[in-house]
Design a protein around this nucleic acid. Structure first.
Lengths: 215, 215
DNA sequence: TCCCATTTGTAATCAGTGATTACATGCTCT
DNA sequence: AGAGCATGTAATCACTGATTACAAATGGGA
């Protein structure tokens, strides 16, 4: 936290308003989703006048983009962690772990995921950080699939680019279904997180050859 | 169109304000996406005072839900058409046609698709029409997959529910990627619609056995 | 035909929003 | 100490969703 909860300011200047505003915005996102964020409320929680935020963020979009950058960092971290905890050397196991890490994070942080994947609340293309981290994950997927291909674990006629596209669309679709509330009518006995996990495994095992490569 | 473009009213009462407001809202959606819709602007275009819409729609959400219901009808129609144009009796070919019809419609009507799949702008769960049509498409998918299974076209150990989930997530993910602008960095030589089509075919052919059943 | 209740629109108003401007304050560096 | 810049304030704009009291139009029953 960049500032105490009660906005106690001894001096006229805040000192760390930019970070405090981001924290306040995150708090608002967590309380009621991205639509719950207003610049004025963030300013109020930072103990500052309604116009002050615009010294640090050109627009509400810019503020939410900063929130998204922070959220994306956490997502990247989650994916990286999931990847590092894989025992096997199998690239396809690692590939599935990326998807699993991604989905677990999205399910645990639905509102942050909403902010990240929105293209109206934030300026994704305008943020090097966002594009970069997104691209980093995509590259890691491509690396692993390339390894799998070299091991002859993909069907011979597999169109590589479209396999990557399919994988991204699949994981993205699952995450958004969870976040968008499409699981309200799912079997009550099975939590969405488990259903998502099973679907992911089904996808990976069908799209690739999960049997361990012989070396 | 329910009313002439120029809101010409000879009498005090509008006569068909409800439909006119929906049309105006659709127009606004088409012009600048769901965020571009405001009740006041819709009222203005209908030639009516800002408070009038609230006689017909309890809230902005209710208005957009009505828009969504109309859009969903068109989507259902598109999927039904795609299905009826399938020559083959093959359930898996028909299954893919559903996905293809769904995706084509979403790509051709991105803003309407946004309205439909949003869960903050509209009250999906509160609309029998929306839930019903959504469920109808899902049921059709299940029917076709059941036929495929009876023909022995699915792997023996295939978990049925999770296959349906995977298929829905996949198509939904592709559609949202297009709509959310995730294709901005795709190979310029290949239009997204073609990439989506190829990815869909890859998915269907991997998840099922596309070779025609022997009867 | 007349009248009255219901429906449907208006006008005024409220609170909240993103954003801009002119101005005041405080910090920092020379 | 003072100049200059960064940072916050106050006032204000235009816009939004929504509510209220009121007025006009409509249509059914006497």
């Amino acid at each position: 936290m960049a500032e105490a909860k009660t906005p106690r300011r001894t001096s006229y200047h805040h000192g760390n308003l930019r970070d405090t505003l981001i924290d306040a915005a995150i708090q608002l996102v967590e309380e009621g989703g991205p639509d719950n964020v207003s610049v004025r409320e963030a300013a109020k929680r930072a103990g500052v006048s309604p116009g002050a935020p615009f010294r640090h963020f050109q627009s509400k979009t810019a503020l939410l983009t900063a929130v998204a950058e922070q959220a994306m960092s956490r997502l990247t971290e989650a994916v990286t962690n999931a990847l590092s905890e894989v025992d096997s050397e199998d690239p396809i196991v690692a590939f599935e772990a990326i998807g699993q890490g991604y989905l677990e994070w999205a399910i645990a942080n639905p509102t942050h995921f909403q902010v990240i994947s929105s293209r109206t609340l934030i300026d994704f293309d305008g943020s090097d950080s966002l594009r970069g981290q997104n691209e980093a994950i995509r590259r890691k997927m491509i690396d692993l699939l390339t390894q799998a291909q070299q091991q002859g674990r993909l069907a011979a006629n597999t169109d590589f680019d479209h396999l990557v596209l399919a994988a991204r669309a699949f994981v993205y679709g699952l995450a958004r279904m969870v976040v968008d509330g499409h699981f309200s009518q799912w079997h009550p006995s099975e939590p969405p997180s488990l259903a998502v996990h099973k679907a992911l495994h089904l996808f990976v095992s069908r799209m690739t050859d999960l049997s361990e490569a012989k070396s």
